[in-house]
Design a protein around this nucleic acid. Structure first.
Lengths: 228, 228
DNA sequence: CGTGCCGTTGAAGGTTCTCAACCGTGGTGG
DNA sequence: CCACCACGGTTGAGAACCTTCAACGGCACG
């Protein structure tokens, strides 16, 4: 059964020691996996908070404000765990950047099931805190930084998460469009494009095609990002 | 011993059933309480992530970007639990809005100590997720909302957390200055002041002295806040 | 080879910031 | 009791940065 092997993969990935059989059986009952095509919103249902594991692919977590404005709250890649709230000040949806495989748990039941599985609880807490810290960094950028600083911050962050570092140079294949970057940084696509242009002219990055970006001078970029 | 009673208060507040004696003794070893005067930064040390319980008073969590820019990431009031990272893209400090009593734990040791205290773990996880959801809402505001929407969002949020609802009217005594509000919303004090003016002229709020704000029309304010 | 989407570039406009002056309140000391 | 001072808040004018609107370019796909 496909479901089972996905759950096993999940447990293998997030937990050192495999949890007790009882816990695994509980998780087997409450999880379900879904395949989401590029650009589609994952049908998670809005009746409860969900915990979603990105088994393969990449996603964006979108918050909808009034007037059709969309703010991307976070990007997630293979191996990430996403907490998707159902009831909040803004409505959230999880959309796939590429064809994506998700493993979905109702959050409350996941927490209940892992009540006596300390390793899984540790993992969940740790990842929640990582998400919190990332979100705080994002808030700093959105609140206090210029367009260029935001873009550089974003690129450095993506480089850390999915870049291939070739000593001084770092190559990233961005799975998201300029619009996504703009929606994540609180800017328009035009501004993103112009800032890419300036960074190119200044010799800090090279862009190849639509998705490939090379960061040439990470040291100096850190400064341009306004990181302390 | 003052320390002990504070820890007891903390445990009483955050956990239904009191945890096992063994856990309490561990927590007693690793916690320490500090008094922070209005406007002062809590001396938490920067060697490790900290978990801070606000036993009395109110605080702001500040992120420092380059160039002396400060972004307030969150406000916390009596009974709140704050996660203060030591190593992050931006340096953080916790400053008291009024004279404040804090209970401080090194985060890693707190997590270790509560490994087999599910109630405390539940509490910690739940509060971390609340902080994450609040931070996401903040990110939406910072990224996609006008000055007025941000201020209204802020006021509604404060009303929920420390307002006294007198049926249709809601009175808030804000413990923070206009500068703090600005630093929280990614705006300047002047903009905050002007937006308060507009809300006053439009008949949505009444301001009394420096700190008191009355929200008159919560229904319509929700709309003005751009929530969903 | 056409079509459509995504990205780039340019010019005009708007919201917020910056700089500056002023006001009101609360606290202090004469 | 009042004058004074310091601080926080208010108000105004001009500038800056980003957005909006518009046209164009180019790569991928049918």
């Amino acid at each position: 059964m496909v479901n089972c092997s996905l759950l096993d993969d999940f447990l293998n990935d997030v937990s050192r020691a495999p949890p007790e059989l009882e816990v695994v059986q509980l998780l087997r009952k409450i999880n379900h996996s879904i395949q989401v095509a590029r650009g589609q919103t994952a049908a998670l249902g809005h009746w409860a908070d969900m915990l979603v594991y990105v088994a393969a692919g990449a996603t964006k977590l979108i918050a909808n404000a009034s007037g059709g404005r969309e703010q991307i709250v976070a990007f997630h890649f293979k191996g990430d765990l996403v907490s998707v709230p159902s009831k909040a000040r803004h409505s959230f949806e999880l959309r796939a950047l590429v064809d994506t495989q998700l493993l979905v748990f109702p959050a409350a039941e996941f927490v209940a099931a892992t009540r006596h599985a300390p390793d899984l609880r540790d993992m969940l807490l740790e990842r929640s805190l990582v998400a919190l810290h990332r979100c705080r960094d994002k808030a700093v950028g959105l609140g206090r930084k210029s367009a260029q600083e935001r873009l550089v911050s974003f690129l450095i962050s993506m480089a850390e998460r999915l870049g291939q570092s070739d000593n001084s140079e770092c190559i990233i294949d961005l799975p998201m469009s300029r619009r996504d970057i703009g929606d994540s940084l609180g800017l328009t696509i035009e501004t993103i494009s112009r800032q890419f242009g300036e960074l190119r002219d200044a010799g800090f990055v090279v862009t190849t095609g639509r998705s490939r970006v090379s960061l040439l001078n990470l040291k100096q970029l850190e400064v341009r990002a306004g990181h302390v």
